[in-house]
Design a protein around this nucleic acid. Structure first.
Length: 518
DNA sequence: GTAGGGTTAG
């Protein structure tokens, strides 16, 4: 068009800029910017907002801001684009400031703030703003994008009741046939423990309306709940429906196979990725397969796979190998993996702890001492563990050794009596998870104060018999807590579901859905 | 015609 001497007008430029934004072609974007100035379009609202959006999506927020500050008249789209840009960069404060300063806000402004909060992990703020938006007298009308933006906040904080209310609300505004909303709902229910409700939402989507993201959501949902067979089967449905899988699909599929011990199926799908489906395996896929082999105890094969990787093995790959060495007590390969990890991620204390645990089990106290000294010297701390539980729609949070809860006294009394009770059923405290130079008794006491135990105790004390407990932890569940919870589920006849950083553990009648295979 | 969106391991 340019070649033919046609300049383009205020209608042409926004489309070109949108393409620049989608392709991150900032040089081309700047060209179009210059072109706009030459033909006197700098005052056009659409061109202005599109330029800001282009700079934001190309990752040069500074340029977006410069332009914004230079503009004499700005419409809401420019403000909204800039707010979204700052949220994308994690500059929450700046985004909040802009939002406050806006004279008029529309639903896009509110939605940009809400999604910005959820994408930065500020679930409380997202839910708070959603409520504020709906306060009496407000004329804001949430639409499907708003709903899709707020649901991940429920998922993050495992707020099932809250999610159900938003589900009702979405139905109330006629969104029950919106496939993006149903996909977001499925993801929310899956992360809030309710696989059945997740499946219901997925099934609400018409067969020909199920896109890649919908399928990925359901595959990942099954995988995280340890339902590998279902994950594989839904993957096959996806292929039958003619939807091309992508890298995310295989992350779900491979981790599902891994968590369920479907070794051969996992390896076959991994081999088919590039050849049949044209999805080239990435580092994270290799990490999944290392995990898959590692869990099965095939550590040598896992090591060999790493050496054959077509790209550099990252921390995730060596981390999976080290974790597998911990469960299968292979010191030799563990040392190899740990050496690489100490270089690749020197600040990750978890790696030092894992190796130290292995040394401790092997009785190699000199090595344990050296590692602990190193940890101390580098001033590293384990990131603080916390767990929370939702009861009657209210969330209760516990840090490790937390005594701040109003019912703390009762909870600690319960937990102090607990070991004797479950020891009779066969529980043996595993103090290798305690990383302090203290006596065995102190270590055992230390175990009883883990945040997940506090949350479970609180749940048992505050719900009627038979009620399912749902506990969420910000880290991986501790091995001793895992063992203890199995006994608790039997003795107190309770189903207890723990969502940790990696997956769901459903404790029932003395065993866990992960089959101790985590 | 512009701005806000759901899926990703250990």
């Amino acid at each position: 068009m340019h070649f033919l001497g046609l300049l383009g007008d205020n209608f042409t430029l926004p489309f070109v800029l949108k393409s620049c934004a989608d392709l991150s072609r900032v040089c081309m974007g700047r060209c179009v910017h210059g072109q706009g100035l030459r033909v006197g379009l700098e005052g056009d609202f659409y061109v202005g907002a599109s330029l800001i959006d282009m700079y934001v999506k190309c990752g040069v927020i500074g340029d977006a801001r410069k332009l914004f500050d230079k503009m004499i008249v700005r419409d809401m789209a420019s403000w909204n684009a800039l707010i979204a840009g700052y949220m994308k960069e994690g500059e929450i404060g700046v985004a909040e400031d802009l939002f406050e300063r806006m004279e008029h806000r529309n639903i896009v402004s509110w939605t940009a703030m809400i999604s910005g909060y959820t994408q930065n992990g500020f679930a409380e703020q997202a839910l708070g703003l959603f409520d504020e938006m709906l306060q009496d007298g407000s004329e804001m009308k949430p639409n499907w994008v708003t709903i899709v933006s707020v649901l991940p906040a429920c998922a993050q904080s495992a707020a099932l009741e809250r999610g159900r209310r938003i589900h009702d609300f979405a139905n109330g505004i006629g969104l029950h046939l919106n496939s993006s909303v149903q996909t977001a709902l499925a993801g929310m229910y899956a992360k809030c423990y309710s696989l059945v409700e997740a499946r219901c939402c997925f099934d609400m989507i018409a067969q020909n309306g199920k896109n890649l993201i919908a399928w990925n959501t359901m595959i990942t949902a099954y995988a995280s709940h340890g339902c590998g067979v279902e994950a594989v089967s839904i993957f096959e449905n996806m292929l039958r429906a003619g939807v091309q899988p992508d890298a995310v699909t295989f992350m779900g599929l491979l981790s599902g196979c891994s968590h369920s011990g479907l070794i051969d199926a996992g390896l076959n799908h991994f081999n088919d990725m590039g050849t049949i489906h044209s999805v080239e395996p990435r580092v994270e896929h290799y990490a999944c397969v290392v995990d898959l082999l590692g869990r099965a105890g095939r550590l040598v094969e896992a090591k060999e796979l790493i050496s054959q990787m077509p790209m550099q093995a990252g921390p995730s790959v060596w981390g999976a190998l080290l974790a597998a060495c911990r469960s299968h007590r292979n010191l030799e390969i563990a040392e190899l993996a740990a050496r690489r990890l100490f270089v690749l991620e020197p600040d990750n204390s978890g790696n030092y702890v894992l190796l130290s645990n292995l040394y401790a089990e092997a009785g190699m106290w000199e090595e344990v001492k050296k590692l602990r000294a190193l940890l101390k010297y580098q001033g590293m701390k384990k990131s603080p563990g916390c767990s929370w539980i939702e009861i009657n729609g209210k969330s209760h949070l516990f840090m490790g050794a937390d005594k701040s809860h109003p019912q703390a006294k009762e909870i600690y009394k319960f937990l102090e009596a607990l070991p004797e009770k479950i020891k009779m059923a066969g529980y043996i405290p595993d103090t290798s998870f305690v990383l302090h130079d203290i006596s065995e008794e102190e270590k055992e006491y230390n175990l009883t104060t883990h945040s997940e135990k506090l949350a479970i105790a609180f749940g048992l004390l505050n719900t009627r018999p038979g009620v399912v407990l749902r506990v969420t932890k910000n880290l991986r569940i501790c091995g001793d807590c895992h063992a203890a919870t199995k006994f608790i589920s039997k003795i107190y006849e309770r189903e207890i579901i723990v969502r940790d950083l990696n997956r769901f553990h459903c404790f029932k009648d003395g065993s866990c859905s992960c089959g101790d295979y985590w």
